[in-house]
Amino acid sequence: MSEHFATERLPIRSMLDIVTARHAARELCERLGFGKADQTRIATAVSELARNVIQYAGEGQCSIADDSQGTHRCIRVCIEDHGPGIPDLEQALCDGYSTSGGLGAGLPGTRRLVDEFEIQSAPGATRITIALIKRG
């Protein structure tokens, strides 16, 4: 696979954008030849992170890229916002910790859902990158 699918950049401003973003992620995942379980994994992860953006930062953006190399197929999603940031990353990644009365499963759960998970957060700039990789 030498040709890459175009990277999609989507704004995340409302609940509707969450639906659009996870649709786009699911679609690219399918086009890259991932199975249904993987499609559901990425869609759920995007839904989770995008909802965090709406809830904590108000708005942000998301880019969905085909990052395949050689025979490895890879979908990489980057979600960014300029919100207040996550004060205690370590705690936020623990199961059951939530500052908003939620289940506290969003971030740690998302980390378990995907193959790669990277998070940087400071006040004014939070950026989470996730990827699914299929070795072929």
Binding site: T44, E48, D95, L113
Partner: peptide, 14 residues
């Protein structure tokens, strides 16, 4: 709940 949905839910820890 679809098989994929079930898998995802348990991975999320729900």
């Amino acid at each position: 709940i679809s098989p994929e949905g079930a898998q995802t839910l348990t991975k999320l820890g729900i």
